[in-house]
Design a protein around this nucleic acid. Structure first.
Lengths: 323, 323
DNA sequence: GTGAAAGCGCTAACAC
DNA sequence: GTGTTAGCGCTTTCAC
């Protein structure tokens, strides 16, 4: 059995409270005693039990990170960044995957609340009502979704959509197709709003579509039928599927049609043609979400909204319109 | 503040132990009482505090999952599967990323041990000595690495390598290049051993190489110089980089050279040419690792070795040798 | 600066 | 079948 605080106390001839202090309030203990305790602790391989500590302090030093789908390439960079950032602040992170199921998500959060100081909700499927209810038990930060009065990280995909469309009109494209995502998606809504508001663009909206390669593949025929020469896809997966679908129908990218994705996942960089895309600041979002969460754990009454900028990465899937 | 066991006891007119029993040993309590307690608990939104429970039972119902790099596309399917499987068994999972740093890894495991019942180590960078030392404090399962006397999940990449090479020789390729991975890698060693043992193959080994797209890109010139017409790459990332590098040098895949990867990451399916690859059973490995871990938590004395089969997925990056 | 003691939320003997 | 009690490993008053 691993050493406990009592073992250390006994072995160093002080009482448990002194040992406790040397770890949680070192300045309160005589340097000499402190060093002795530290030496013994080192010797015994003692490490404070965080769970036991949590019982009295109310701080678990854990956070929960809930994403829709770990295997969706959009998430791993966010998870990685959030985890690294949390750990640098001495927090461990539970990660869980809801498989896009609201039921699972709610159940999950409930069993997690007691073990964490807060939860990071990434693109939750839960209703606002459910989120607000759960919020009574544990602090939240939501990413890419708006829930009133809740700390939020948004990625400004509307701006990215504008950049993408301007990029294409700059290349001479007039008729632009927006391949939208699932109907409930906040991101899709933002893209649509931004695109619709732009002037001098002959916009056609296609969708809703599944946010996957399949979704892109399936919409290829519609894109061709629409007569658009420029396409902004809901995300990179859709863009890649679409390019594939166009290719199968003898339409070349970027020669015949230009395609822009959203997210900047790894596959887009690896693919040929390399995908022009709206880069989402996923890593930054992960870090900032952790910061916001840790901060709102301290003082609960500060809902904040942070909007992170997106940018356009021009690669090979866009080109000048054919004469 | 959330309801505790005492609140429930008081509100339902029984003692805490009875409440405790209704949750952890329901059969020991009178159905009538049990229902009453359950109703009150539901009403109060009571959920047992798992951390507190762990303090007395010694079972946290958490596991740790440590991977080298969350953003490496090899891992997310494993993480996803392990997490889902664990949760189905009422376990939560901490996931952590060591960024390939042994120092970080060891420190991480140490702070995690008290909060988990066991740790899943995926392709650890730690020395065997360090692993064995840590093992005194917490059960482990290691994936794709051999540590004596430790429960292990291996993916039979040697078999996959044989399949890949046979596939290429079957297409008429005689001279085959093995683009190996980092020198310490168990996977790379297995591939090499399997390839070397094959007869009737004119094998040339290139490497070690970085396990990344860059590694593949950098080795392209050597592959061409080697005169090989078939290549087995350390993993898909390397294969994709290599194809890119060959392409830049005017060498076409599969027309001039056939390339096989290992892993079966998403990008390989999305890329053109779609990658022929040795599919690693990552999801199955994740699930099985959890099973093994949970089992070895029960009875500590059963180190087991499970070897999972790999398979060859033939897609578009391999073809008949040019006449 | 250090010790004593209570208590965090829960389980596990042991009584009855 | 249920109550009583001790205690898991730790922090935190409160004394001294």
């Amino acid at each position: 059995m691993a050493a406990t605080i009592r073992d250390v106390a006994q072995a160093s001839g002080v009482h448990v409270s002194t040992v406790s202090r040397t770890f949680s309030a070192p300045h309160l203990v005589n340097p000499e005693t402190r060093n002795r305790v530290l030496a013994v602790a080192e010797d015994l391989g003692y490490r404070p039990n965080r769970a036991a500590r949590a019982l009295t302090t109310g701080r678990t030093h854990n956070i929960g990170l809930i994403v829709a789908d770990i295997a969706n390439p959009f998430f791993p960079p966010l998870i990685k960044a959030a985890q690294a950032h949390a750990r640098a602040r001495d927090y461990h992170v539970f990660v869980a995957d809801t498989d896009e199921d609201p039921q699972v998500e709610e159940e999950l959060i409930q069993t997690l609340t007691k073990q964490v100081d807060g939860v990071l909700l990434c693109s939750p499927r839960l209703s606002n009502r459910a989120i607000e209810r759960l919020h009574a038990d544990v602090p939240f930060v939501v990413v890419n979704r708006r829930v009133k009065g809740m700390p939020t990280i948004l990625m400004d995909v509307g701006h990215g959509a504008r950049l993408a469309i301007e990029h294409m009109t700059g290349l001479g494209h007039r008729r632009i197709a927006l391949v939208s995502g699932p109907s409930g998606s906040w991101t899709s809504g933002e893209m649509r709003a931004a695109a619709t508001a732009m002037e001098g663009v002959d916009l056609v909206i296609l969708g809703p579509n599944a946010p996957t390669e399949q979704g892109g593949l399936a919409v290829a025929a519609d894109v061709i039928a629409s007569g658009a020469t420029g396409v902004l896809a809901y995300n990179d997966l859709v863009a890649i599927g679409l390019i594939e679908g166009l290719y199968e129908r003898g339409v070349r990218v970027p020669d015949d049609v230009s395609v822009v994705g959203v997210d900047d996942i790894v596959s887009g960089r690896l693919n040929r043609p390399k995908l022009t895309t709206v880069a989402m600041p996923t890593a930054a979002a992960g870090r900032m979400a952790v910061d916001l969460l840790l901060q709102s754990v301290g003082d609960s009454a500060t809902p904040t909204l942070a909007t992170l900028e997106t940018s356009l990465v021009v690669r090979e899937s866009t080109g000048e319109v054919r004469q």
